[in-house]
């Protein structure tokens, strides 16, 4: 048995190395000026210096952050409200809401972006604003992740019991929902928001198809720079990688905690 375990460990190691090679090599590449033989030569952090002194980079970071916050906030609220009504008052609607939320998962970026573009491009009002379209598209593309997280969270707590006791104590429906239910599933909401952040942060398809290169977020910035300056671009790459890693690590540890929390609850019963 131990021998097979050893083989399994080797497999895991091979896959991990394979997955980390592109990241590691690009990281090393970003810190040297020349790499045309086996080992890189001339250590230098000039790539990072160039990135951090570039105002366009700063703007790209700000754009990325702003474009994360608005759609995530909007989608969190609308999914919360919809699922709350479905869970407490109209359970029959759950399946329907789920279906709508899962469509973007199977359609994915390209078709969604071109469909929104061709529908709104000629209407000539606020909705034909490119940023408005992008915002709407992001709201929809993160629906599957927001839905799944919030749905699982609501499933894990006993919503109707909590609501009933809150209402018996005199709280109104909405009040009870925001003061009792939402705090109880805060971790689930936060985890799905982080996942959604990862999606929006890594997006290139929607932003390119809907705004061209007018809205230069981190991905567009990297794309523009990688054609001209590969060392600077690799520095941007490392920064994007670090941010992605932080988001992932946060999701990972929160999910772990959540799982332990649920186990404890079940144990107490």
């Amino acid at each position: 048995m131990d021998k097979t375990k050893k083989y399994e460990r080797i497999w895991i190691l091979i896959i991990m190395i394979y997955l980390l090679i592109p990241l590691a090599i690009t990281m090393v590449y970003s810190m040297f000026q020349k790499w045309t033989k086996v080992l890189p030569e001339k250590f230098s952090l000039s790539g990072y210096g160039a990135v951090f002194s570039d105002k366009l980079f700063l703007y790209a970071v700000i754009r990325s952050i702003v474009m994360c916050i608005i759609p995530i906030a909007v989608t969190t609220v609308i999914v919360l409200l919809a699922l709350f009504v479905a869970f407490v008052y109209f359970p029959g609607l759950k399946k329907f809401i789920q279906m709508i939320c899962m469509i973007p998962y199977s359609i994915q970026g390209v078709i969604l972006s071109v469909s929104i573009l061709s529908f709104y491009v000629s209407v000539n009002n606020i909705f034909s604003n490119r940023y408005m379209m992008l915002c709407g598209a992001y709201c929809v593309i993160i629906l599957p992740y927001m839905f799944q997280g919030i749905y699982n969270g609501m499933n894990a707590i006993e919503m109707s019991t909590l609501m009933e006791s809150a209402q018996m104590l005199g709280a109104g429906g909405m009040y009870a929902f925001f003061r009792v239910i939402v705090p109880n599933i805060a971790t689930s909401i936060f985890v799905s928001a982080l996942l959604a952040m990862g999606i929006i942060f890594g997006d290139y398809v929607l932003v390119r198809n809907l705004t061209g290169t007018a809205f230069e977020n981190m991905q567009i910035y990297l794309y523009q720079i990688m054609k001209t300056d590969s060392v600077k671009a690799s520095a941007v790459f490392v920064i994007i990688m670090m941010i992605t890693f932080c988001i992932t690590a946060a999701v990972f540890s929160l999910k772990g905690k959540e799982r332990i929390g649920h186990h404890k609850k079940r144990g107490r019963k």
Partner: peptide, 30 residues
């Protein structure tokens, strides 16, 4: 294998799964 090895494997998988599109293309160009 379970245990700590599995946790770090999962962490790397989670991280790399977010890593597609432009950065991935760039890494392969390098």
């Amino acid at each position: 294998i379970k245990g700590r090895g599995k946790v770090s494997f999962m962490l790397i998988l989670n991280m790399v799964s977010n890593f597609a599109g432009i950065p991935l293309a760039f890494a392969y160009m390098i």
